[in-house]
């Protein structure tokens, strides 16, 4: 009996047992970002029997993802399948019992305000600090644990933020670094991803099975290539003047509300988000674009993508648009207005 036995080895593990397994089945985890970290977390949690997963990602699968983003295939690259759609398909093959919500959206304030309160906790698998600081504020506001995780090259770092208990990300970071070290510039090896996820998912299992005493409480970092492991007890850094976890002002929720364009770090790409009221008429747009013989057009049920001059433009059904080929917001807006409207 496949259905009854599949969690047996995990239930043999004493801290989880039958009670812990039941708790996992009743849990709902949000994974923000389904790239390398998110794919790996999602697979572990689906296999472990977490009842509900909400996957959020704004992007689609590209060839350079395949080296480390374990849920995706060459077919997904050919079809330019949105990452969460491809991930959901693969995860359902792995465990049909998992309830999976696939959200092809940018994880902004409005979106997370709706999704996070429904879940037990949030796993950070994003590729940027803007989104992390929104997660940090939202999770303080709604009293949800979240697990910071990030990696670049052979280095990784992770920390579990518990509202009212631990320092938050805002307490720990004195500024947002912008030194251009991203997966797109200095690269990333897959073991670094898996190491971060091992820490993150273990912390998640401890929280969901209510083994809170087992939580690490430490800022953990490593460099696999340099054979280094660092663990810092950072409890003393909880800042009594922190606008996020102490003063409860949530500065990143207000600021983000105004942001409409974002330069995607290291990708020579600008993202443009339209107001929620704007409805994209996909089929009409497609017809219009087909009339221009200089435009190479591709579409699937989730997105429309075309090439013009030095740009590649991808329009998602929710109206969100990626302009590849520029870092200049004004230039991107011009292309947007020229071809998307």
């Amino acid at each position: 009996m496949l259905v009854n036995n599949r969690y047996h080895r995990q239930m043999l593990f004493d801290p989880i047992g039958e009670t812990g397994q039941k708790r996992l089945q009743e849990s709902h985890v949000v994974i923000v970002g389904v790239g390398a970290l998110g794919s790996s977390s999602a697979e572990m949690l689906a296999r472990a029997g977490v009842g509900t997963l909400t996957l959020i990602d704004r992007d689609y699968v590209e060839e350079t993802n395949l080296q480390r983003q374990q849920l995706f295939s060459e077919e997904d690259v050919r079809m330019q399948t949105p990452k969460v759609i491809a991930a959901k398909k693969r995860l359902q093959e792995i465990n049909h019992l998992t309830n999976i919500h696939a959200e092809v959206i940018d994880a902004g304030v409005d979106e997370l305000e709706v999704i996070v309160p429904q879940a037990n906790l949030v796993i950070d698998a994003t590729d940027n600090f803007d989104t992390r600081l929104i997660i940090n504020d939202i999770c303080q506001k709604h009293h949800k644990p979240w697990i910071y995780g990030a990696c670049v090259a052979s280095y990784g770092v992770t920390f579990t933020v518990l509202p009212e208990e631990t320092p938050c990300l805002q307490c720990l970071m004195d500024h947002i670094p912008s030194d251009g070290a991203t997966c797109d510039t200095v690269g990333i090896i897959s073991p670094a991803v898996q190491m971060v996820v091992s820490h993150q998912v273990t912390e998640v299992l401890k929280i969901l099975t209510e083994n809170l005493d087992a939580l690490s409480g430490k800022l953990i970092a490593f460099d696999l290539w340099k054979n280094q492991q660092m663990e810092l007890k950072v409890a003393s850094l909880k800042d009594e003047t922190c606008p996020s976890c102490s003063k409860k002002q949530y500065p990143h929720l207000a600021y983000q509300a105004q942001l409409k364009t974002a330069v995607l770090c290291g990708r020579n790409t600008v993202q443009i988000r339209t107001s929620a009221e704007k409805i994209i008429h996909f089929d009409e747009m497609k017809k219009h674009l087909e009339r221009n013989q200089h435009i190479k057009l591709f579409s699937n049920p989730y997105l429309l993508s075309f090439e013009i001059d030095k740009y590649r433009v991808v329009v998602f059904r929710d109206g969100r648009t990626l302009i590849h080929g520029t870092k200049n917001v004004q230039e991107a807006k011009k292309v947007y207005y020229q071809y998307v409207g």
Partner: peptide, 10 residues
């Protein structure tokens, strides 16, 4: 000394 820096990739 232990030095841990924050990175953004994922």
């Amino acid at each position: 000394l232990e030095i841990v820096h924050f990175v953004g990739g994922g």
